[in-house]
Amino acid sequence: MTTTGDGGMTDEERGHSDTLVYQYLPSRYGMNPTDLRRADAIEIVVGQGAKPGGGGMLLGQKISDRVAQMRTLPKGIDQRSAWRHPDWTGPHDLEIKILELCEITDWEKPIYVKIGGARPYYDTALAVKAGADVVVLDGMQGGTAATQDVFIENVGQPTLACIRPAVQALQEI
């Protein structure tokens, strides 16, 4: 199983992946309904292990012609990756987004919710109550090219430490 990462889907990754999970991120880079339908599952990224609650910066030097086309961005210009979904104002918006993605994909794709290792008990409960089919726990070891070392080394909890509170939330629900 592979994920598309932040920035749309390429024909190559769809062709080479038996199970491709489309990551639906706050940046919305390259997001389009056609690719959502081509995926095998959709993963709404609420948090990421290496930077729960933190955004990022995609440097313009990394935005080549290919990246610009895939992510629908201008070539060579720095882009800020949002730290939260811009159309969400509260916890009920996750449920609305899950329903919207289900409608776009004719209820054929499972919806994952990815949470960073910050509040695994509460975030797991929130994701399940909102209708997630799968909760993905991403501890502080989760990597990203768009964050500072201080986040990678000092923010979030290890994945193993997140499992017990997440399971406790599931049991209580």
Score class of each variant (00 low, 15 high):
M1G: 14
T2D: 04
T4N: 02
G7E: 09
G7H: 12
G8Q: 05
T10H: 07
D11F: 00
D11K: 03
E12I: 14
R14H: 08
G15F: 04
G15Y: 03
D18H: 15
T19C: 15
T19Q: 10
V21K: 11
V21L: 12
Y22S: 14
Y22H: 15
L25G: 09
L25V: 12
S27T: 07
S27Q: 06
R28Y: 08
Y29F: 15
Y29E: 08
G30C: 01
G30H: 08
M31E: 15
N32K: 11
N32C: 12
D35V: 02
L36C: 08
R37L: 06
R38T: 05
A39Q: 05
I42D: 07
E43N: 05
V45H: 04
Q48K: 03
Q48R: 07
A50R: 07
K51I: 02
P52H: 00
G53E: 00
G53T: 00
G54A: 11
G54R: 06
M57T: 07
M57D: 02
L59S: 03
G60D: 03
K62S: 15
I63M: 10
S64D: 13
S64G: 14
S64E: 14
D65W: 12
D65R: 10
V67C: 01
V67G: 02
A68Y: 03
M70V: 06
M70I: 09
R71Q: 15
R71T: 08
L73A: 11
L73D: 09
P74C: 07
P74L: 13
P74Q: 11
P74K: 13
K75F: 13
G76N: 12
I77S: 10
D78F: 13
D78G: 06
Q79M: 09
R80S: 06
S81A: 14
R84W: 01
H85M: 02
D87F: 05
D87K: 12
H92S: 15
D93G: 09
L94T: 10
L94V: 06
E95W: 04
L101D: 08
C102E: 01
C102W: 01
E103L: 00
D106S: 01
W107I: 05
W107L: 08
E108V: 07
E108Q: 10
K109D: 14
P110V: 10
P110L: 03
Y112H: 10
V113A: 01
K114G: 09
G116L: 02
R119C: 10
R119K: 14
T124A: 13
A125T: 12
A130L: 11
A130I: 08
A130K: 07
A130D: 08
A130M: 09
G131F: 09
D133H: 15
D133Y: 13
D138W: 04
D138Q: 09
G139C: 13
G139P: 13
G142K: 04
T144Y: 05
A145Y: 12
A146V: 03
Q148Y: 05
V150P: 05
F151K: 00
F151C: 02
N154C: 04
Q157P: 06
Q157V: 05
L160D: 14
C162F: 07
I163Q: 14
R164Y: 11
A166V: 15
V167C: 07
Q168N: 11
Q171E: 13
E172T: 11
I173Y: 03
